[in-house]
Amino acid sequence: MTATVVITRPLAQAEPLAARVRALGRTVEILPLLEISALPDQAPLRAALADLTPYALIAFVSPNAIDAAFAYIAKWPQGLRAAVVGEGSRVALLAHGVPAEAIASPADPAHSDTEHLLQVLDIGALRGARVLIVRGESGRELMADSFRTAGAEVTLLPAYRRGVPQLDAQLAERLARLLDGQNDWLITSSEALRGLAQLAEQLDGPATVAKLQQQHLIVPHARIAETAAALGCHRVTQTASGDEGLLAALQSRP
């Protein structure tokens, strides 16, 4: 029996990938391991986005950051540069009317991460300039640190909140069922993987954690593979970053 492909992205980003996995003839189950919610106080976000003209560059870490920000951006200023790490974010900016020529992203969509974004940006040109990074309440500091090292004045703007879902009866049933089998789990963030481990521990302690450690995880970045190893998960396939890498890994599965 072919393993089910478990997609663990937040719900809004899971379905496009699910459609492509189904097109491969695979059975899919969407199990969001991170919930995205609005910040309870929107005033700081609204105020920060009221005037974008002082900035030389605005970086968005995810489609969630873009959607949250554009609730308060009426029109993208002419000449303002945007930066994103993934193809999904680039498409989201285009949908909000940002010109393609204004968007910087990794040259190869198969390498959609901060490291490859920084390679295509003219970091030196940001010395003395103001840069805004729109992200969740927490996140990696690599982008901000790199801009600061280049001499930019960096502002971090929280735009949404991420959190592990509560283990209610419905989630407990789904998680127990999936961990009882041998499935292919698409894990696209270390935070989601740590959340999965927490949920497994809450479900039935070490016995369920041991089942998680026997699952096949498909991950698009070395950082996530390292998190998996730290959690005792050793059936890990690391792919190129981006959806194409995940799909290629699934196609190579027997």
Rank of each mutant, 00 (worst) to 15 (best):
A100V: 11
D204R: 12
V120C: 13
V219G: 07
S189I: 07
N183I: 02
I30W: 02
I103R: 06
I187C: 05
D243H: 14
L186H: 05
P40G: 13
L203W: 12
A56G: 15
A47L: 02
G128Y: 11
V91L: 14
E244H: 13
A102I: 05
I73K: 01
F70V: 05
L49E: 04
P16V: 02
G195T: 12
D51L: 07
F70I: 04
Q166E: 15
R127V: 09
A14C: 09
P16I: 02
A102Q: 14
D168H: 13
V164Q: 05
H96N: 11
I30T: 14
G124K: 13
R174H: 10
W76S: 11
F147T: 09
A192C: 06
R26S: 06
R20H: 12
G25K: 11
D168Y: 04
Y72Q: 02
V120M: 08
L246T: 05
I187P: 05
P206Q: 12
A144W: 06
R148G: 03
Y160E: 09
L52K: 06
R81C: 12
Q13L: 04
L193K: 09
Y160N: 09
G232Q: 10
A12C: 02
V5M: 09
A18N: 07
A172W: 03
A210M: 04
V98G: 07
A48P: 03
E141F: 00
H216K: 13
L94S: 14
S189P: 10
L52S: 03
A3T: 07
P16A: 02
L171V: 02
T237S: 15
G245W: 06
R26N: 00
A47H: 02
A71R: 15
I133Y: 06
E15M: 12
V28P: 03
L196T: 11
F70P: 00
D243Q: 15
T8C: 13
A197Q: 13
L17F: 09
L199Q: 10
H116W: 11
R9F: 10
E226Q: 15
D145V: 10
I224G: 07
L34D: 04
V91R: 15
R90H: 13
A225S: 15
